[in-house]
Write a protein that binds this DNA or RNA. Structure first.
Length: 425
DNA sequence: TGGGGTTAT
DNA sequence: ATAACCC
């Protein structure tokens, strides 16, 4: 049965994009309900990274400086959101909840998920046809207010997709207390673009006849997910400024400027075509922790910062249960003109005798790790010369499951479930 | 402009 | 190891 679905052309997929409303602010309002009806911002360093809708009504925007935000809105309440632990935990609860409906769930950041509901839709459409039930209703908005033709099986399937999206949002609200938007369409690109069309706590389905309207509604090329800052700059030098320009641009010239792979991909995106699959995210590929600051200019300070980053990280890795085999140190050096883009990193394998210690408490793994990280630091920075760092980040990656013999006798008998990831507990 | 993440080269 | 992308 699953073969019949995957063998069918990609045009028949039904994809749901779920996008939580101002996620960090919602989590903070759940942690402290008194903040519910007040304008609330979440602060990291001197930036308001997100805010609730009360604050938005009063003119606060995402990524506004604290100074500007307070000027706009003196009553604004700010909570510090530099520790992502509460958001990360809630984020994985959402992904796990969606995973109860369907195995194909892909995370995008902490507050978005793609779900390929093609199979669920298939089952429901079959049931509907057998029971001869024709009372099928769309849930939420239809993009462009386009008329639905339920005799068109593509329409029918997307309408059923909208009902499933509604069930997702209801479950997320009932069980986790979170609101969000959803978009339903035939691929990831379109589902993501359409999910934002009605904004807080609403959902929208895109029917194929309105695809070009959705695409052409994008005023800037960078609004296409997958076309970022760099590609936009290069397209601008070619005179490509909007979707129509990109659609019409000669493929051969595009391929010469951007390379065949990127050119083909983004030109397809410009038509609303995206055959990339929903790839289940599973547990995280890496764990990192970083801190930014005005200035760090001595080895002693660097060591102190690293020692501050490690305990939290080690705790997360311990709870995850897997062992990292690679460690990386990333720095950002101060440079007045540059676009804050100048990060460099060094990584190395973790010595096997240290890997063993990740499972256990009480053994001191911190000191040897700090030593390794300081060696990596010296590979980047000549400590005899002056330096000025503005960020330090430690990342553990190349995560591997414990050898099964180490998992304790009971581990041998436990059913190997796909880990719903290293979130909770 | 934070504090995270991913994949491709 | 970096560079691009995403939030």
């Amino acid at each position: 049965h699953s073969k019949s679905v995957s063998a069918r052309s990609a045009a028949h997929r039904v994809i749901v994009h779920v996008d939580l409303d101002c996620f960090y602010a919602q989590v903070e309002m759940i942690r402290n309900p008194e903040l519910r009806d007040k304008p609330l911002g979440v602060q990291q360093k001197y930036i308001v990274v997100t805010c609730n809708y009360e604050a938005r009504k009063l003119g606060v925007k995402k990524l506004m400086s604290v100074k500007d935000a307070k000027e706009k809105c003196p009553q604004l309440i700010l909570v510090n959101g530099e520790d992502l632990t509460p958001y990360r935990e809630m984020s994985y609860k959402v992904t796990e909840l969606l995973g109860e409906f369907c195995p194909l769930v892909e995370r995008l950041g902490f507050d978005e998920n793609f779900v390929d509901v093609t199979e669920i839709v298939e089952e429901r459409v079959n049931q509907l046809q057998q029971s001869g039930c024709s009372r099928v209703c769309v849930f939420g908005h239809v993009y462009n207010n386009q008329a639905i033709n339920l005799h068109d099986t593509t329409h029918l399937r997307l309408v059923v997709g909208s009902q499933i999206a509604g069930e997702f949002r209801e479950a997320i609200y009932a069980r986790l207390g979170l609101t969000g938007c959803a978009g339903v369409a035939s691929n990831k690109l379109l589902s993501k673009l359409v999910s934002g069309t009605f904004k807080p706590n609403q959902q929208t389905v895109l029917l194929p006849e309105s695809c070009q309207d959705l695409i052409r509604s994008l005023d800037r090329i960078q609004k296409v997910p997958g076309i970022g800052y760099k590609t936009t700059k290069r397209l601008e030098t070619l005179g490509v400024r909007n979707m129509c320009d990109l659609q019409a641009f000669p493929s051969a010239m595009l391929e010469k400027e951007l390379g065949v792979s990127i050119a083909k991909r983004i030109q397809k995106l410009s038509y609303g075509e995206d055959d990339s699959p929903v790839t289940p995210s599973g547990p995280p590929q890496s764990f990192s922790d970083e801190d930014s600051f005005k200035k760090c200019s001595s080895e002693v300070e660097v060591k102190k910062k690293i020692q501050e980053l490690l305990p939290n990280l080690l705790d997360r890795i311990y709870k995850d249960g897997r062992q990292p085999h690679t460690v990386r140190l990333t720095i950002r050096q101060f440079s007045p003109a540059d676009k804050w883009f100048n990060r460099e990193s060094r990584q190395c394998p973790i010595p096997p005798h240290l890997i063993q210690k990740f499972g256990k408490e009480s053994t001191n793994i911190i000191s040897p790790l700090v030593d390794i990280l300081m060696k990596l630091f010296r590979k980047m920075i000549d400590v005899d010369l002056p330096f000025h760092l503005t960020l330090l980040s430690v990342c553990f990656s190349n995560l591997k499951d414990l050898p099964s013999s180490k998992k304790g006798s009971i581990g041998f008998y436990l059913k190997q479930m796909s880990p719903p990831s290293g979130s909770g507990k």
